[in-house]
Amino acid sequence: MATGGRRGAAAAPLLVAVAALLLGAAGHLYPGEVCPGMDIRNNLTRLHELENCSVIEGHLQILLMFKTRPEDFRDLSFPKLIMITDYLLLFRVYGLESLKDLFPNLTVIRGSRLFFNYALVIFEMVHLKELGLYNLMNITRGSVRIEKNNELCYLATIDWSRILDSVEDNYIVLNKDDNEECGDICPGTAKGKTNCPATVINGQFVERCWTHSHCQKVCPTICKSHGCTAEGLCCHSECLGNCSQPDDPTKCVACRNFYLDGRCVETCPPPYYHFQDWRCVNFSFCQDLHHKCKNSRRQGCHQYVIHNNKCIPECPSGYTMNSSNLLCTPCLGPCPKVCHLLEGEKTIDSVTSAQELRGCTVINGSLIINIRGGNNLAAELEANLGLIEEISGYLKIRRSYALVSLSFFRKLRLIRGETLEIGNYSFYALDNQNLRQLWDWSKHNLTITQGKLFFHYNPKLCLSEIHKMEEVSGTKGRQERNDIALKTNGDQASCENELLKFSYIRTSFDKI
């Protein structure tokens, strides 16, 4: 039985969820670079991206490699990797027998973001014989899940209580170790020597080791999670996991709180800001991140802002960003909400898709409305799209047979046209069989910064309504002859009103 693990408890099935942008060198404390989270699957090609990484700022997932063999891993080693800020997950990587050479110096898994409450997941690794993470000293947050690894031993010899604050939620089941077939031998045991430290858990006094050649490092209890030197002297209180010299914040392997210019500090002093819960960055760093993602459509890219001495992905609820200094300031009234469309555009074809934009005031991208039916549609669209004030790209209304009016965009005031449909149009209306009105132009103002209007096959939309939009939106004169079809717009509506004058002759039985 794995020490510190839980057996036999019912657990939810383990679901495996399925960018080499360097964020800056980590400095003297770390020998390499800070790398983003990685999802490495199918083959070993991307694994080489770990070569210079000291910190993975995010998670590391290595999974679904069915053609790899043990010899493929023999020359692979990433000794610079010290810390993973989120979680480490391995799933069905064939041929991998140990992690001792792959990650010989991995010391800390912070667990800032977890995989279903777990910071370390080893699942269905069919050839893994031992973990071998002999320098792993601290899992700051989260638990361990090690399950269905039929060859995995050296679990009962690990004292997880020396690595985690609590072992109650560890789930370590259905491994070879369960069948008591392992016969784990710690260093020196074969020669009758006791080389590794022994600890007591559940009444068992057991030597602690990761492999037959690597003991588990056990520091004096007084050192807590700070770690200790090879001689057993406690590291500085700002260290986490390990250090090369005692009581020196510049000799830590990793930091308990924050890293700044080669030393570990309790908090980031001005003019620095907390970033990702582990390091200090200056304003320029946060500003660069903001600008890199301002026009990016890459998933996970955030326009970072500053709030409460932190550089964070977005302002919290009730705050909006001051564009001059990136500071989050309290909103006066309802907060603006910028919604970034991942692929640059979004099609609204149902109430469900409209709900995804609920509360958005600025759309960074283009909207395509293609709704053919739905219950209580006008009210639903207004509830979900009615706060949109600005669209950076274009607005396209296409084959939306259920629409009679666009009044559900009740606050839309600006279409920038930074991206144009077919390279020309910022407003595009095609084949809307029941569209009769755009907006009530006596109450609604709309500016279209650039781009043209396109109207074709809107049989109940009168040309007068379209011409009014040209005047109000500032697009009059931009359109070419064929942009607004004269014969297919309003051709099934009563669009022309003329005053009919009647004269009559009164007659009676005795007068003409």
Rank of each mutant, 00 (worst) to 15 (best):
N257M: 03
L260Q: 01
D277T: 05
I122S: 04
R256M: 06
K80A: 09
A230S: 09
L64R: 06
L29W: 11
P79G: 05
R46Y: 05
Y134G: 13
I185G: 14
P70V: 15
C264M: 01
D178P: 06
E266V: 12
G37C: 02
I109G: 00
C243N: 00
M125R: 00
H236E: 06
Q287N: 08
P220H: 04
N242M: 09
C328P: 02
E207N: 01
W160R: 15
C153E: 02
N257K: 07
C280P: 00
N309A: 10
V218G: 10
R279V: 07
I56G: 00
R69W: 07
P316V: 04
S323R: 04
V93S: 01
Q303N: 08
S54V: 13
I62L: 06
I222S: 11
E231K: 05
N149A: 12
H28Q: 08
D72H: 03
G111W: 01
K100N: 14
S237N: 13
G232R: 04
I139R: 01
T250E: 06
Y87L: 00
H212F: 11
G333T: 03
T194F: 14
L332M: 13
P334T: 12
K251R: 12
A254S: 05
N308E: 13
C335K: 01
C243P: 00
T199E: 05
F115C: 05
S143P: 10
Y272V: 02
V200F: 14
Y154R: 14
C235D: 00
D165P: 14
L90F: 07
L44S: 08
P104D: 00
K148D: 11
G111L: 02
L81Y: 00
Q276M: 04
F78M: 08
A156E: 03
Q299Y: 03
Q216W: 08
D248T: 02
M321V: 15
P220A: 02
E97Y: 08
S244W: 10
R41H: 01
P270C: 04
N242C: 10
H28I: 06
D165G: 12
Q276T: 11
L120F: 00
M83W: 02
I163V: 12
M137E: 08
E130W: 08
N43R: 07
R256L: 07
A156S: 09
R208S: 14
I62V: 14
D247L: 07
N150H: 06
I158E: 04
S112W: 10
H274R: 04
N195S: 09
P31K: 08
L63N: 01
E147M: 10
R74T: 11
H214Q: 10
R263N: 08
M38N: 11
I163A: 01
D177W: 10
F91V: 07
N135S: 08
L81N: 00
C186W: 02
L155R: 04
R41V: 08
L136K: 01
H307Q: 06
T229R: 06
C235W: 01
N170K: 08
R298C: 15
V200M: 11
L89S: 02
I312Q: 04
R263H: 07
A119D: 00
G333N: 05
E151T: 02
V218T: 08
E147Q: 13
G203L: 09
D159M: 04
E181L: 01
I139M: 07
E57L: 04
V305I: 04
L44C: 04
V126G: 09
Y171A: 11
L102S: 01
I40S: 00
N42V: 07
E151F: 04
L96I: 05
Y134R: 13
C311R: 05
N242F: 08
G32M: 09
Q276P: 02
G142L: 02
N170C: 08
T329P: 02
F116R: 06
N149Q: 03
V253D: 15
D261C: 03
G192S: 13
I84Y: 00
E33C: 14
I82A: 07
K176S: 08
T107I: 15
L128R: 01
K193G: 12
I82R: 12
T140F: 07
M38L: 07
C293D: 03
N149E: 00
C196K: 05
F115M: 04
H226F: 14
E168Y: 04
T140A: 11
C219N: 06
P271K: 14
F73S: 04
S324P: 15
F123A: 03
C268T: 00
L233H: 11
T140Q: 09
M38P: 01
L96W: 02
Y94A: 08
C153S: 15
V253H: 08
M38D: 03
F115N: 02
I62C: 01
T211G: 01
S244N: 07
K191D: 02
S324D: 15
R69V: 07
T140G: 05
G262H: 02
T68N: 02
F285L: 06
T221E: 15
T194C: 02
C53F: 00
D277A: 13
T157S: 08
P70S: 04
F116H: 02
P249L: 07
L136W: 00
V206G: 04
E49F: 06
L332E: 14
T194W: 12
R110I: 10
M125K: 00
G37Q: 12
L120P: 00
G300L: 08
D75G: 02
C196N: 03
S296P: 05
M137Y: 12
D288S: 12
W160G: 01
K100Y: 08
L99N: 01
Y273W: 10
N282I: 12
Y304P: 03
N170W: 03
C311V: 14
R92E: 00
V144E: 01
P270D: 11
P269L: 08
Q287E: 15
G262D: 01
P246S: 13
N175L: 11
L174P: 13
C35D: 00
